[in-house]
Design a protein around this nucleic acid. Structure first.
Length: 929
RNA sequence: GCCCGGAUGGCGGAAUUGGUAGACGCGCCAGACUCAAAAUCUGGUAUUGGCAACAAUGUGCAGGUUCGAUUCCUGUUCCGGGCACCA
């Protein structure tokens, strides 16, 4: 009777499905626990072994919590809108809805193979109208809300209208100071003004307060393709497809006013159980800084209102070291202040910068810039300094202009050196003319009335003075920008917005969902608009032609799982009150800032508006590492059909060619399979072997189809079973760590399960398990394992749990022990990892109900108590011997025992020990003279 | 460029709070069973020297703190992820 994983796994999967073993109820007397995976984008390539890593980890934890008596919500769905499906449609003419559906079915089948405990009755797909109805509904709530900075929360826009009617906006200024009201000179208006504004003006004003708003933003525009490109479709300023030039173009865009939440997104990080690295990344992204905004008056002020250059600096203390100013090339004043002599050079430079992506601009090491011909006056010392433009200053951050202090900032320093701008030293002897002084623990010198002060005090003093003089003010700044929330694409959620005379009006909520219309062509519309602009029936209704970005549906999906079939509301408040936050969220670090920040913001908005009762979505976050591919290479002798084994390639001139990792055993090529590979492309291959083998080259890189290094979990499940596959993925190493995939080791885990099986059944003898009473030693093995398994699962160290199982099974086999009382507890421990075999053996032991609902055993101290242990004994820090010493030995007794030891005496070489360090339960160290 | 990780035997990794570096598994070597192979089982396996006992070296690299460092500190190299329209 052997371990027939194929039959038993299929049997239990069917049985569990039939019994609804994974259905979860929204009512339970048990405490709740919510375990969530970051749902996948169903790509056409299907699942590879990297995907399930996090899913297996969460599945184990969910099953573990269930055994511990929790009501566990563990759902799965698909992030189904996105660019690749649309790209596939353009290339193959297959509608994204069709290819997406196929991909989802494929993913689902692959996931089912692995035996996850998802409650599939709660499955969601973001492209399903019954789902995106509520994405649109939430968008409308954002559109109809504003952020009340005094109450520090989102409120319905009607309340803002009431405020305007009563008192104008003097207490609630525009969130963005750069706006202007058409036909109105100021940014402050009274209640009387409001009454006299026409509808267009009123709506324009309200738009500047809405949490979802329309504005203008730059996109990557490719004239030749007639379309807007994503950043990763642009390489070195040209399109990835075709290599056509890409420039920036301003287009009407929707935005999320996430900046209003910057402070709360920052401070609420303290309430979350996330890794410090993750919190740090979010903190850096939010980029809160305190500094000052300072106005430097122009020597020759341009026409218009702006008579000075407004800069933001976090180092106002260095103002006496300003040697030049730098504006972003897009800065609106550039055209006005450029002198006629410099105009040609500035125009040329601005054109160059237009062709550069923001990424390229930040990455660029080469220094570039252009003098505008204009000068400003430093308000603190009257010094005249030149104004430059350069791509290293970004228009979107701060005021889009900086005061450059070469002696105090690395980039400014390089810029000054490059353009030979004289440098003022404000750090005395510290500054050597070669490196800028970025250290903040220094004293400022050569700086008028702040000379001799440390950085912090100098900054304080200078800002106070600037504020008194009305030329500067303290300012908190955020690096984070409002999130662009529209795409000029087809395959996304349509906006429930209708345009009338340039004003956006929300559709009535009863009209939702606004369904995505069918199109025959995915070509972009005129002027860079999305494909929806080509549909007459759509444009006839003046509907918005942009669609929502990929992160729209994923910003709230964790809420829909709680109440997936509700047609009246996105999620019933009672239900979300029960399930509350996601207790454990597992996913990759690549979502560190995007998805996780947007979800946090949406959660806060829904909380502010009273739709849910918690303001953070994910209590604990666990980041799974990436499984890298391990690529294999063969080496073809140039101009021939001969392939040279790795060890011999020095002797030939060869070309390195990718070979499918699946036809290589370790590093040894299966030559027959190679000949058949790629429809016999290499059927006539000849091999130059070493030791009768063809050895392949190996490289670790990203897993991808084009590198032939993807491994399909289906193949492994077929060959070894789901239980083996699950355990092997965990056995590879810590979940959080990235590591290369190597199929070779899977057999070790498979052997372990067979060995486990043999504790119950022998191939010849059949049943070997017994009802005998276990010995103390056998209990000890069990209880030590219970303790280890429980503690390691709690700290998400799944790889060490697997080895604990192996140790237990090895020890029980060695004894041997076949006793039911020990074995059935072991099976419960194993259930989260290998549910199929555990359930099978559980029933074979004569148990009735499902092991999925067994109670996790409790370990007892009494089985684990030791009276003595082997201590390592070191002399001067080097371990020299071992001594078995009673655990209750005193320092004095230990010293006597140790000094009596021959080996210790030998290493003391006659010296008297200075000190004997004895750490109970750890080690002993003898320090000699 | 900026931000965040990582680096330990031939390979994946273990060492949870500064306390025996290399658990567990793969691979490899030897042996048992077998006509043979597979499967299974037993033993060995960081490196160097030595028959061995044993000794020296050893956690990317260079320093430091400590009785004691894979673990803490400073510097540095290489690799991975992110940088706002891939998701």
């Amino acid at each position: 009777m052997e371990y027939d994983f194929k039959t038993l796994e299929k049997f239990w999967q069917k049985r569990w499905e039939k019994d609804g073993a994974y259905d979860v109820d929204n009512n339970s007397s048990n405490p709740k626990y919510y375990v969530l995976d970051m749902f996948p984008y169903p790509s056409g390539a299907g699942l590879h072994v990297g995907h399930p890593l996090g899913y297996i980890a969460s599945d184990i934890f969910a099953r573990y919590k269930r055994l511990k008596g929790f009501n566990v919500l563990h759902p799965m769905g698909f992030d189904a809108f996105g660019l690749p499906a649309e790209q596939y449609a353009i290339e193959h003419g297959i509608h994204p809805a069709v290819s997406t559906e196929n991909n989802i079915n494929n993913f689902r089948k692959q996931l089912d193979n692995i035996g996850f405990c998802y409650d599939w009755s709660r499955e969601i797909k973001t492209c399903d109208p019954s789902y995106y109805k509520w994405t649109q509904w939430i968008f409308l709530q954002l559109f109809k809300s504003w952020y009340n900075r005094k109450a520090n929360k989102a409120e319905p826009i009607e309340r803002l209208v009431k405020i305007f009617e009563q008192e104008g906006n003097k207490e609630y200024p525009f969130p963005n100071a750069k706006v202007s009201i058409p036909g109105y000179p100021s940014l402050i208006f009274s209640n009387e003004d409001w009454k006299h504004f026409d509808e267009v003006t009123r709506q324009t004003i309200l738009m500047e307060y809405r949490l979802a708003y329309c504005g203008y933003g730059e996109v990557n525009w490719c004239e030749a393709l007639g379309t807007v490109l994503a950043n990763d479709e642009v390489i070195n300023g040209v399109s990835e497809r075709g290599g056509y030039p890409v420039v920036k173009k301003k287009l009407r865009q929707w935005y999320m006013r996430i900046t209003e939440y910057a402070d709360r997104l920052q401070s609420d990080l303290d309430t979350l159980d996330w890794s410090d690295a993750m919190k740090e990344m979010q903190t850096n992204w939010i980029g809160k800084s305190t500094g000052a905004e300072i106005v430097f008056p122009f020597s020759n002020p341009p026409d218009g209102e702006e008579k000075g250059l407004r800069v933001y600096t976090t180092r106002p203390d260095t103002i006496f070291g300003v040697d030049f100013m730098v504006m972003a090339p897009e800065h609106e004043l550039v055209g006005q202040i450029t002198t006629s002599r410099q105009k040609a050079a500035v125009d040329e430079y601005v054109t160059y910068v237009k062709s550069r992506s923001e990424r390229e601009r930040m990455t660029e090491k080469k220094i570039s810039g252009c003098f505008t011909g204009a000068y400003v006056i430093n308000p603190v010392n009257g010094k005249e300094v030149p104004v430059w433009i350069s791509e290293y200053v970004l228009a979107g951050y701060g005021t889009g202009a900086i005061m450059a202090v070469p002696s105090g900032d690395e980039r400014d320093h390089k810029f000054a050196k490059h353009f030979k701008i004289p440098i003022t030293n404000i750090f005395g002897d510290l500054y050597n003319g070669e490196d800028a002084i970025m250290d903040k623990q220094v004293v400022i010198q050569n700086s008028g009335f702040i000379s001799g002060l440390p950085v912090k005090e100098a900054a304080e003093k200078i800002v106070s003075r600037l504020e008194e003089d009305g030329i500067g003010l303290r300012k908190v700044n955020y690096k984070m920008r409002d999130a662009a929330f529209s795409r000029q694409r087809y395959w996304g959620e349509p906006f429930p917005i209708m345009w009338k005379e340039g004003i956006a009006y929300p559709l009535d909520e009863s009209k939702l969902p606004l369904e995505l219309p069918h199109v025959d062509s995915y070509k972009p519309g005129p002027e860079g608009e999305g494909p929806l602009a080509n549909i007459q029936s759509w444009t006839d209704q003046s509907l918005e032609t942009n669609t929502m970005p990929g992160y729209a549906g994923s910003s709230w999906y964790f809420l829909r799982y709680m109440d997936p079939h509700n047609e009246k509301v996105f999620c019933d408040r009672k239900v979300s009150d029960y399930w509350n936050q996601v207790d454990l969220y597992i996913g990759g670090t690549e979502h560190a800032v995007g998805h996780l920040l947007y979800s946090r913001m949406w959660t806060k908005v829904l909380y502010d508006l009273g739709h849910i009762g918690f303001n953070e979505p994910f209590k604990k976050l666990l980041n799974q590492g990436m499984i890298q591919g391990s690529s294999r290479f063969v080496y073809r002798k140039r101009g021939s059909n001969s392939f040279v084994s790795l060890g011999l390639i020095e002797q030939y001139e060869t070309d390195k060619i990718y070979v499918d990792v699946n036809i290589v055993d370790g590093v040894e090529l299966d030559m027959e399979a190679f000949k058949k590979w790629r429809n016999g492309e290499y059927a006539d291959a000849e091999f130059i072997l070493e030791d009768g083998k063809y050895v392949c080259g190996v490289e670790v890189e990203k897993m991808s189809k084009s590198k032939f290094n993807t491994v399909n979990p289906d193949d492994l499940v077929n060959k070894f079973g789901a239980d083996t596959f699950r355990m092997y993925e965990m056995f590879l190493g810590p979940v959080e760590q990235s590591k290369p995939w190597d199929t070779k080791g899977i057999e070790g885990v498979h052997r372990f399960l067979k060995k486990l099986w043999r504790l119950f059944y022998d191939e010849q003898k059949g049943k070997v398990w017994t009802e005998e009473t276990p010995t103390t030693q056998e209990w000890k093995i069990l209880h030590r394992t219970i303790k280890k398994v429980e503690e390691d699962i709690e700290r998400f160290s799944f790889n060490t749990v697997v080895s604990a199982f192996m140790i237990a099974v090895n020890e029980l086999t060695d004894l041997p022990c076949h006793k039911k009382q020990v074995l059935e507890n072991l099976l419960i421990l194993l259930t989260p990892f290998a549910p199929h075999v555990a359930e099978e053996l559980w029933h074979r032991l004569g148990n009735e109900g499902s092991i999925l609902d067994a109670a996790f055993p409790k370990w007892e101290e009494k089985y684990l108590i030791e009276s003595s242990r082997n201590y390592p004994v070191a002399v001067n820090g080097k371990t020299r011997t071992e001594l078995n010493i009673s655990l209750d030995a005193t320092q004095k007794e230990v010293e006597e025992l140790v000094l009596a030891n021959e080996i210790v005496q030998k290493w003391l070489e006659g010296k008297t020990p200075k000190k004997i360090i004895y750490v109970k339960n750890r080690m002993i160290n003898v320090v000699a003279g």
